[in-house]
């Protein structure tokens, strides 16, 4: 091979992500400039943060000695509220999501229905649970009911959107074949669409159950019931041992929900 040896040529690695020279420089220097500005305008009270470390140590201490018993009543009530809120809102959410999801699929719905359903989905997705919860607490008063309405509403945005996207991606030949037999709209949905999207709908519902539980632990902070409210109270009282007990419970419940829903999803498919 030495006889075909090329003359010394230099080689430099070509840029990895952005190959265009101008854009690469512009984006990198823009990012750097932003970072400098962001850090420069950061207002941090380091003195206060430093003092907080001692409190952090206390918190860590509290976290390592979780106290489930002294406020057991409140913890239990919060947990039961969270779980029941999750169950009810997921079920109601699914029941409402299915028709809206069908309506929001362009390939099986007429344009006006499609637009209305998509609008509902967009509204529900635009704001996160906590903001919706603020509004519903203002309307329904404090407590689990506002949380239930919040989570049901948020479930619609999630499930109906993914269901609709799923239906839009089905194999059109199967639905066409069913339509070709002279089937009506309901029959097309039942025979041509449902079998194709059902497994994913079940999977998504279980996944949403999971998310709803996590969220139920948060919306209590703005007064919508559940374990989040209990946690907030414990933090206000500087009762870190109870707070840590609640956090541990949340982690365990989330893991349980995640593993069991993952298990059921695998079992269904």
């Amino acid at each position: 091979m030495s006889e075909v040896q090329a003359v010394s040529r230099r080689w430099r690695r070509p840029p990895v992500l952005i190959r265009n020279d101008f854009w690469r420089r512009a984006i990198y220097s823009g990012a750097l400039l932003y970072l400098l500005l962001a850090i420069g305008t950061l207002e941090v009270d380091w003195q206060r943060a430093y003092e907080g470390l001692e409190r952090g140590a206390r918190f860590l201490q509290g976290f390592l000695t979780p106290d489930f018993t002294s406020r057991f009543d409140q913890i239990q009530r919060g947990m039961v509220e969270s779980v029941t809120m999750t169950v009810c809102s997921t079920m109601v959410g699914i029941l409402i999501s299915v028709p809206i999801g069908l309506g929001a699929a362009r390939n099986i719905s007429p344009l006006p229905v499609y637009l209305v359903c998509r609008a509902i989905i967009s509204v529900s997705r635009a704001f996160q649970e906590i903001i919706i919860a603020i509004l519903f607490v203002a309307m329904f008063g404090f407590g689990a009911f506002a949380g239930f309405v919040t989570l049901s509403f948020a479930t619609i945005g999630f499930l109906a959107k993914l269901l609709a996207d799923d239906i839009e991606e089905i194999d059109p030949r199967q639905a066409e074949a069913v339509r070709g037999t002279g089937a009506g709209w309901w029959q097309v949905v039942n025979y041509g669409v449902q079998p194709q999207v059902m497994p994913r709908l079940i999977g998504l519902s279980l996944y949403r159950f999971d998310i709803n539980f996590r969220e139920s632990a948060v919306i209590g902070i703005v007064g919508a019931g559940g374990i989040g409210a209990t946690l907030n109270t414990a933090m206000d009282r500087y009762d870190y041992s109870t707070a840590s007990a609640i956090l541990i419970l949340i982690i365990i419940f989330v893991m349980l929900a995640e593993y069991s829903s993952g298990y059921i999803r695998k079992w269904i498919q």
Binding site: M1, Q5, A6, S8, R9, W11
Partner: peptide, 8 residues
């Protein structure tokens, strides 16, 4: 190494 790679 680079020369060798070009050659190959």
């Amino acid at each position: 190494d680079v020369d060798k790679a070009f050659g190959l």
